[in-house]
Design a protein around this nucleic acid. Structure first.
Lengths: 343, 343
DNA sequence: CTGAAAGCGCTAACAT
DNA sequence: ATGTTAGCGCTTTCAG
C-alpha cells in the first residue's frame, strides 16, 4: 500500500507537504507541487478513506438508506435503486446500499467515518426517528417521502394529495356521482406513513368539491379482505359507479372480486388505480391509473443531493405532480350505462 | 465525540481493555466487562470507524462491480443486485454499487482505501482486463461468470454447457431428430464473452452424442435479423422440428417470425429457450426453458465471498446445474406431427 | 515556502 | 486478566 510517506520520500519532500498539495490548504511552490503530483501519479497513490480528518475529500459515494424490514417488497424498492444508480453514474458517483433494519447506528457510522458524502433516505415516515440525527449530521441528506416536520431537510415525493384528487376529477368529468376508495391496509394508516393518508385526504376533499359521494375503506393484503371490501361497497352503495384503488396488493384481484360482487369492469363500474404504470397496463382490462413515478423520484433525489453537495441551495421540497394515464377501465359514458345518481 | 479513552476513564480501566471488550479478542473478567459495557451505554459511545490500524477490522461492505456501459440492460443487472443485497443483509453486510465504466481505477481505489472488504464482479469476460488486478489485490473477490484463466479466483456461473445440452436432451427425448440453435449476436461470440460460446458448444456436443442433426446460427438484435434467421433455418432444413433459442432480444418475436416462415409453435416446431423463467412464462405459447438463475447466482456469490472473508476456503468454481421447465412449446409428439427424419 | 512533530481514535504487540 | 505503548495514515500545529 502506497502511503503519503512514500510519496514524500519519492518526491524528496516532507509528508506534510504532500498533504498540503492534496488539500490545497497552504501555498506550495509550483515546482514542488508538480514534483509531488508526479510522484503521486507514478506511485499510484490513493488516499486511505479511513483517515480523513474532516470530510474534506469527497468519497463520491451516496449512502442509500433502505431498511430491508420484514415485509419490504424488494422489487419495488429496486425501482428506486435503479433510477438512483443510473443518475448517480452521471455525476460520477456510486451508491452504498445501507440495508440495516435499524438505520440509526449505521447512519452515524457512515457519517462519522466519512464513508459517504450524503444520504438518500427511503421509506420515510411522518414521525421518522431518523430525522433528528439526519439534521444534526455534518453531511447532507435527501428524503424520499414527506415527514411531518421537514424543517431543515430536503424532500422529494409524489403529490399524493393531488393524485387522489386527480382520480376524482377524472371520474367526475366522466359523469360519475358516487365513487369508492380502496386504500392501504389499516396498519399503514395507523403507522404514520403519510403517503397513504395524503392520497385518501386528496380523494375525499376533491369529492366534496365536486359534490360527489365518496366512501373510503382500508383493505388488508389477503384476497378475502379484498373480496369482502368490494362486497361491502357494492351492497352499501348500489349507485356507486366508480372505484379508486390505492393498494398494489389488492389490485391483482380487483376485477375478479368486483365480478364476484356482480359488477363488471368497466361496464358496471369504472376503476382508477394509483400504482406503477407497468402494473396498470398489464391488468385486464388495462386500468386507468395515476402513476407512482419511482424512476423520477429516484432521479430527483440524486440531483437534489448533488446540488447540496455542490453547495447550491435546492428547494426544500420537490412535489412531483401526478400524471393520469387513461386506459380501458374508464371508458366514456354510454347510453345503456346505469344512470348516474345524484347524491 | 465520545472516545474509547473516555469510556476507559469512566470505567476505570485501560483503553485497550475497552477495545478488547468490544472486539472480544481476549478474555475479560465478567466484572470488568459489565462495568465497561455500562460506561459505553451511559456515555453513548459509538465506535469511530475512522482509525482502524490495518484493514484488519472489516468495513462490512461488499463492492459490487457492475459497469453501466452503454447498452447495459439495467433491470437484468438489478436482478443480481436484488439477490446480492438480500443475501448480504443476512450477513450484516452492505453493498457498494460501483458502476464506473472503466472498472480498474475504481477497483484500485476501493481496495487501497479499505472502502470495501471484497468484490463481487459482474459481466466477466473470458479475457477480462480486471483479472490481473483482482488477483493482486489484498482483498478477496468473487466473479459471476467464467473467465478463461480462473486460477486463484473464485467464480460462480450457470453451467451453460450443460444448459445447451439439456435443451437437446429434452428435445431428443421427445423424438426430434433435427434441431436448430439461434444464438446471441455475432459480436458476442467475437468478443470473448464465454457464456454464449459455452451454451452453443454444449448444444452441439449433445446433438452429436444423440445423433441429432444440429444447425447453429447467430442472430442480431433487430427484428429483421430474427426473421431472416428463422427463414434460413426453415428453408435449408425443412425437416427441422425443434429450435433452441439463446437470445433474449430475439425471443419476443420468435413465435411470430416462425409463423411468418410457415411454421406454427408448437404444432410444426418445438421451441426451448435459455432465459429467465418469467420471460418464458409470459410468452404465448409459454416456452419450455432452461432458466437463467440470477437470484441464485447472486446469492451464491455473496456466500462465497463471505466464506473467503471468514478465512474459509470455498471451492474455486460453483457451477449451477441447469434446470429445465417444461411448458407448452414442447408438447408430447402426436401422430399427425411431421415424421421425424433420421440424419 | 517547507519540515518536524504532535496528535486523531483505535488496535495489537509487549509487558506484567 | 489487565495495563503500557507503539504504531496505523493522515492532518495540523509549531518552528523555522
Amino acid at each position: 500500500m502506497v502511503t503519503i510517506a512514500e510519496v514524500a520520500r519519492h518526491a524528496g519532500v516532507a509528508p506534510s507537504t504532500v498533504s498540503y498539495v492534496l488539500t490545497g490548504k497552504r501555498s506550495i511552490s509550483a515546482d514542488t507541487k508538480s514534483r509531488v503530483r508526479e510522484s503521486i501519479r507514478s506511485l499510484g497513490y490513493q488516499p486511505h478513506v479511513h483517515t480523513r480528518g474532516l470530510g474534506i475529500t469527497r468519497t463520491n459515494v451516496i449512502g442509500l438508506v433502505l431498511p430491508l424490514r420484514a415485509g419490504t417488497y424488494v422489487p419495488a424498492v429496486m425501482r428506486f435503486v435503479t433510477a438512483a444508480v443510473t443518475t448517480a453514474r452521471r455525476y460520477d458517483m456510486d451508491l452504498l446500499l445501507m440495508t440495516a433494519d435499524d438505520g440509526l447506528p449505521a447512519l452515524r457510522r457512515a457519517a462519522n467515518s466519512a464513508l459517504v458524502d450524503g444520504f438518500l433516505v427511503l421509506d420515510v415516515e411522518k414521525e421518522d426517528a431518523r430525522l433528528p440525527l439526519l439534521r444534526q449530521l455534518s453531511i447532507p441528506s435527501v428524503l424520499i417521502g414527506r415527514p411531518a416536520a421537514a424543517r431543515g431537510l430536503t424532500c422529494v415525493d409524489l403529490d399524493f394529495e393531488a393524485a387522489g384528487a386527480k382520480c376524482v376529477e377524472h371520474l367526475a368529468d366522466l359523469g360519475h356521482r358516487s365513487i369508492g376508495f380502496l386504500g392501504a391496509p389499516s396498519a399503514v394508516y395507523r403507522r404514520t406513513t403519510g403517503f397513504a393518508h395524503r392520497a385518501m385526504t386528496g380523494f375525499s376533499a376533491a369529492a366534496m368539491r365536486r359534490g360527489v359521494a365518496a366512501t373510503a375503506l382500508s383493505v388488508e393484503e389477503d384476497h378475502d379482505s379484498v373480496l369482502r371490501a368490494t362486497e361491502v361497497l357494492v351492497r352499501a352503495h348500489p349507485s356507486m359507479t366508480a372505484l379508486v384503488v390505492h393498494n398494489e396488493a389488492a389490485l391483482g384481484g380487483i376485477t375478479a372480486c368486483l365480478r364476484a360482487a356482480g359488477r363488471h369492469v368497466p361496464g358496471d363500474i369504472a376503476v382508477v388505480a394509483i400504482c406503477p404504470d407497468e402494473l396498470a397496463e398489464r391488468m385486464s382490462p388495462p386500468l386507468t391509473s395515476v402513476r407512482l413515478p419511482a424512476e423520477e423520484l429516484g432521479r430527483h433525489a440524486v440531483e437534489l443531493l448533488v446540488a447540496k453537495l455542490d453547495g447550491r441551495q435546492p428547494p426544500p421540497l420537490v412535489l412531483l405532480p401526478p400524471k393520469l394515464s387513461r386506459r380501458a377501465s374508464t371508458p366514456d359514458p354510454v347510453d345503456h350505462a346505469p344512470a348516474a345518481v345524484r347524491q
